[in-house]
Design a protein around this nucleic acid. Structure first.
Length: 560
RNA sequence: UGGGGUGUAGUUCAGUUGGUAGAACGCCUGGUUCUGGCCCAGGAAGUCGGGGGUUCAAGUCCUCCCGCCCCAGCCA
């Protein structure tokens, strides 16, 4: 975190500290509304909020902005805490709820009314909208704008007491109906909502609006820097106005651009649709950019944090290439993942000169990137399983793998030379035969001869059966929102974003794998044991493939 | 004739007080290798949104223009 690239928020905070504007203290907050699951866009915000606090020796609060009980639920509060913690951040004792400040907010609202800066309006929602004016024209004052302080006080107390039905009255700030900033045209501070709150129960039937509440939440907690996304830039004058009217601490709001990622969507509304319409299996579907989905997919918190660091912080709208996320993932997984051999689409390979019924244990390195990871043994026998892609009867140029007459290495085992392939009546290759060189045990030839390819394999009689789930982008297009009139983003859903392989086999060491464990299947990709794995046959989610030069060569050969 | 933002390689970002541009990812070459992974070396790629101006010198300063994003919830 020390040699991070510079960005404007870091510079602004430094400048504030230098100028003594915040007592040298840095207090930030991550303020989710508990009405949905966190996604990688939130991860960016979390990294910035907690990251800035940590960098300047300050603190970052986790505060639930629970001011709208009609859409918030306890289960989201729980899930959000789990996700933030999993990402590696610690709010210590600073867990807060906006709803805990309702009493203080109410007092301050009364103070504003007494100062003649807020009034109760009887206009309906539609009327208020009509009075607000347009983007280019000023609004009109409500006929109730000039009520006396006494009348406003009385009406506001009766609103709170539950005397009026939902939507019948609101408390509004008295600012400027002609302001070019619509947020300043007498914004609503409180609305009547006779809905029990998930934490406050029936204590309130009026609830504060975001603009009124958020600055106070920040202020009450002593937040120094309130970091949020760009769409709140227009709200900053109002944020400042409220705080300026009151005898309270005044934090500084700074806005940055939210994260967009290619090949996926970040909007809560659209994510919800994907879940509700069954395009995915739930909020933690491994194809979703939700934190829970990424976790189940096998992403590491470290990879996500590195990613958030590398994308930078700026104010322009942008779309980050999903490839950068995958790069950060592979970089981390490469260092930490134990290697293991598994064959996704098996093809029988019979070693004709290997004694029938015999088997032996061969030593394999657990992680070439980490000498401390040690070794294990894998069983070898006459009947092996190799990847179908690793054999071609009539190979094209640059194909280095097994083919008739060709010698390759079986990793950690022997050099084998293919003799022939066997086809069934329909002409499909059902097995391959070959011979091995006993002197190459372990994988090296005493005479120093080389092979151009090394294949992964499993011993057929020893292998365990596993299920693998191969994921591709949920959206085929980089921009899921690129669609024609009359269509919506769901037309861009990739119909083959999930491929389930039931015939995969793995080396027996995988028997001990537990849900959440991550492995590199050598030459194939990184996999993570699914949380829903049944005991007998573990399910492996493909987190990400290994970079694959051969597939690029193939693409080139096909296209030209 | 509303307001607020924002425009630098394909992408995401850096570019100190003005000295004709850098990184990462992606892409391409080559090397290395018991993973076609990792690693190493190299390369292609930018009329710095456009015009005008100030200056010996402008991505940086001034000015005009253009593009894109956000705002008319009793959502956050």
């Amino acid at each position: 975190m020390q040699n991070s690239t510079p960005h404007f928020i870091r510079e602004a905070i430094k400048e504030d500290i230098r100028a003594g504007r915040c007592d040298g203290r840095v207090v930030t907050r991550f303020p989710p509304e508990p009405n949905g699951y966190l996604h990688i866009g939130h991860a960016k915000a979390i990294c910035i909020d907690f990251g800035m606090a940590a960098e300047f020796g300050g603190e970052c609060h986790l505060r639930f902005d629970d001011t709208n009980p009609s859409r918030e639920e306890q289960r989201y509060i729980d899930a959000i805490q789990e996700d933030v913690r999993w990402l590696g951040f610690d709010w210590g004792e600073h867990l807060y709820f906006a709803s805990d400040y309702f009493g203080r907010m109410h007092e301050l609202a009364v103070m504003l009314i007494k100062a003649g800066k807020a009034y109760v309006d009887d206009l309906s929602a539609d009327e208020i909208r009509a009075h607000r004016g347009t983007l280019t024209g000023p609004g009109r004052r409500s006929p109730h704008r000039d009520r006396t302080v006494e009348e406003n006080l009385d009406l506001f107390e009766r609103m709170r007491a539950g005397e009026f039905p939902d939507g019948s009255r609101v408390l509004r700030a008295k600012i400027d109906m002609a302001s070019p900033n619509l947020n300043m045209r007498d914004p609503v501070m409180y609305r009547i909502l006779k809905v029990p709150h998930h934490r406050q129960k029936d204590a309130w039937c009026i609830y504060p609006m975001y603009d009124w509440a958020h600055g106070l939440e920040d202020s009450l907690e002593g937040v120094t820097h309130s970091l949020c996304s760009l769409e709140f830039e227009d709200h900053r004058p109002l944020y400042d106005w409220f705080l300026d009217q009151l005898p309270v601490h005044h934090p500084r709001q700074i806005e940055f651009a939210r994260l967009n990622l290619s090949h996926t969507i970040m909007s809560k509304r659209k994510l919800l649709r994907l879940v509700q319409e069954g395009h995915v299996e739930g909020w933690d579907d491994p194809r979703l950019p939700t934190i829970s989905g990424l976790r189940r997919r096998g992403y590491t918190p470290e990879a996500i944090r590195t990613f958030c660091e590398r994308i930078g912080v700026a104010k322009r709208d942008s779309v980050v290439d999903h490839a950068l996320l995958e790069h950060c993932l592979r970089e981390d997984l490469n260092k930490r993942s134990p290697r293991v051999m598994a064959v996704l689409r098996p093809l029988r390979l019979v070693i004709d000169n290997y004694p029938d019924g015999q088997s032996e244990e061969l030593e394999a390195v657990n992680n070439p990137e980490d000498p401390g990871a040690g070794t294990r043994t894998v069983p070898f026998s006459r009947e092996l399983l190799i990847e179908r892609d690793d054999f071609m009867e009539d190979p094209p140029k640059k194909y280095f793998r097994l083919a008739p007459g060709r010698e390759v290495r079986l990793r950690y085992a022997y050099f084998v030379t293919c003799t022939h392939a066997v086809r069934d009546s329909s002409g499909e290759i059902v097995e391959v035969h070959g011979t091995y060189d006993p002197s190459t045990r372990g994988g090296d030839a005493p005479d120093g001869r080389k092979v151009k390819a090394t294949l992964h394999w499993v011993s057929a009689p020893h292998a365990i059966q596993i299920e693998t789930r191969l994921y591709e982008h949920l959206f085929a297009k980089a921009d899921p929102d690129a669609f024609d009139d009359g269509e919506d983003f769901t037309v861009n859903i990739n119909p083959v974003s999930l491929e389930v392989l039931n015939e995969a086999r793995a080396e027996p060491s995988l028997k001990k794998a537990m849900p959440g464990d991550r492995f590199q299947f050598e030459r194939v990709g990184y996999f993570c044991v699914d949380t829903a794995s049944a005991g007998g046959r573990p399910v492996f989610n493909r987190t990400v493939t290994l970079r694959d030069e051969w597939s690029r060569i193939q693409k080139r050969q096909q296209s030209g």
